[in-house]
Design a protein around this nucleic acid. Structure first.
Lengths: 344, 344
DNA sequence: CATTTGATTTATAACGTTGTAACAACGTTG
DNA sequence: CAACGTTGTTACAACGTTATAAATCAAATG
């Protein structure tokens, strides 16, 4: 069996291998590797060259074990939600900038939130960022008793003890969408909702209140939907089966909106000529060249930054008793699926 | 500030807290926690109850540090590829069954493969599973000199030293798709390819050889495509602009196929009535109720299982000098986007 | 009764890293 | 020249866990 590294015994090189090679003590090598001030330029260079030569890599686990701080933030996300992909990317950047690392733990059909969180805890994360968690509020509170917990996009009705919330102003987003549609001349605007999904209630409320504000209370119409394209497609079929169709649809999220778009296309109903469609999230789906979905942008960057800084504040600032809830204002992104209705 | 845990000082409980609480020694508590044989039923129960009471959780980092084996496999995946999501899910299961844990590291627009791999190495992974890596073969070989590396879906032309490959038989998959279409009566079958993406060359070759096998060499037609919906949409527009349209399209992957479908729909070209479309991967996109894409299934479960067992074999079996390349046979999944051509 | 056996339990020493405090070597200063 | 900072370096202990070997103890044997 061939040797797998530059030190004789085939194991990965450690600090003491490095120190031996450079002809210095272990602590000195350590200081150089972590860029602490102290070592002279000469020894610094010697150590770095030796590191290069033997291919030394610090062992982050030992490092974290030693320092009581782990500077590790656990992130729970759902593999099936594209918006989560955007968030994870933004979280890497935000955490890096704050001097923290990220440990990912995925939720999927065969992997529960419970399992995902267990893994993060065993990994010694100092704080948890949960992307639209479905766990009961009691469970979140239980976790928050052990370490800082940030719930992203999931609002907690009574501000749950110890759990920070970072979310977009879903009601405001829905309002913007309705305003835009009304300004274009639409009156029959339907909302395909997200049932009991995180954020759904707020979007519903925002939709209703905006309709009311425009004096369209009697045109309010909710169709049961959900988070997936299938849900959107089903809702769209419901609409098609009816005599009087709406002129515009506000879908719960981009995924759902795509299902709606697709169903309309198949039924030969041109969008936006005959009917306008608005999504929610501004995930990369919406930006696809052939989709160009008008949607409510959730500002993943912002959300990520705020979530991280919230967690860090709890960790470093001691008792941070400002707002428990951070609300980021969403922004309507107008693309090509909305237009004035062709006939009133 | 409220206490964040069940032990007085607010830190997370350790083995010695647990041992003290249970009135036993630290090593004994350790044995109980990891289910080693030795402890009596009585002490086992006492320790477990104490663990329950103080909310003890083993610190996996310390655990890994101590045992030279970490039983940790690093997985590099791309947040934007739905097929990777399926693979990650399957990998969790496969690794768990083999007694290993998984560390995820994502690649995205703002996070390079290099960064992703660095993070995994620092985490002390024993082996790396890379999902369609784009890194140059030389770089992979360099990594393989340090630890077992499995490349999934990316074939390495000359079997690169030390890198195992697990992939679907892309050529065979393309062949199956063509066979299916020909059996339905199609002759003008176009392939929208994946350029230089991993697997693209094989699919191209499989397509060509199958066409040849059916005596359709003069009908071979390649259109430049890519991995995303946008690529598929662009290719479809190219096809639409021409006088003689094909009766069937084999797209590089599901993503690309969806772009094609969408463009055809917008152009009022019914699928599969006027034109058939086949994808590749059988990612969850293809299974959506309103898409029901006929596609070549890559068998994520199989791939994941084989990738893990390959890595484990290298780690545990010492010198495993069987095949360096594991090829899984794909299976055509016939759904609703293929049908006999309406006019010959 | 002394002694072996077997089952439990414990003491001790690591794993690779870093913080603390101590230590040399050196030139400055009174 | 003695006392003193500086600057660079090192010894030592610790983080939370587990492997090894040694210790304890009851029961069983000769």
């Amino acid at each position: 069996m061939p040797s797998r590294s530059a030190v004789p015994d085939g194991k990965r090189p450690t600090l003491s291998d490095l120190a031996a090679r450079a002809g210095v003590s272990v602590p000195l090598a350590s200081m150089v590797m972590r860029g602490a001030k102290g070592p002279s330029a000469a020894s610094r260079e010697r150590v770095l060259r030796a590191a290069q030569e033997i291919g030394y890599r610090p062992d982050s686990r030992a490092r974290l074990l030693r320092s009581s701080r782990s500077h590790l933030v656990g992130v729970q996300f759902d593999l099936r939600q594209p918006f989560h992909a955007d968030m994870v990317e933004a979280l890497y950047a935000a955490a890096g900038a704050a001097g923290y690392q990220i440990a990912l733990s995925a939720v999927a059909a065969s992997r529960s939130e419970q399992e995902a969180v267990e893994a993060l805890l065993a990994d010694r994360c100092e704080a948890l960022i949960l992307l639209s968690p479905h766990a009961p509020a009691a469970r979140l509170a239980e976790l928050a008793a052990q370490l800082p917990v940030v719930s992203v996009a999931r609002r907690l009705r009574p501000l749950t003890d110890g759990v920070d919330v970072v979310r977009a102003a879903d009601d405001e987003g829905a309002r913007q969408a309705v305003d835009h549609l009304v300004a274009l001349g639409h009156r029959d605007i339907v909302h395909i909702d997200g049932g009991r999904a995180p954020g759904a209630a707020d979007r519903r409320r925002g939709y209703k209140s905006a309709m009311k504000h425009h004096g369209l209370t009697d045109r309010v119409r909710l169709v049961p939907g959900g988070l997936t394209e299938d849900h959107g497609a089903a809702a769209a079929r419901t609409l098609l089966a009816e005599a009087a169709r709406p002129t515009a649809v506000l879908a719960f999220n981009d995924h759902c909106a795509i299902g709606v778009l697709d169903t309309f296309l198949r039924a030969r109903i041109p969008v936006p000529d005959e009917i306008s469609v608005v999504g929610f999230d501004d995930s990369h789906l919406a930006r696809l060249a052939h989709v160009q979905l008008t949607t409510v942008g959730q500002e993943a960057r912002q959300l990520a930054r705020r979530a991280v800084s919230r967690a860090v504040a709890r960790l470093e600032g001691g008792a941070v008793d400002e707002e428990r809830e951070v609300v980021v204002t969403p922004h309507l992104v107008i693309r090509s699926t909305t237009r004035a209705p062709c006939r009133s």
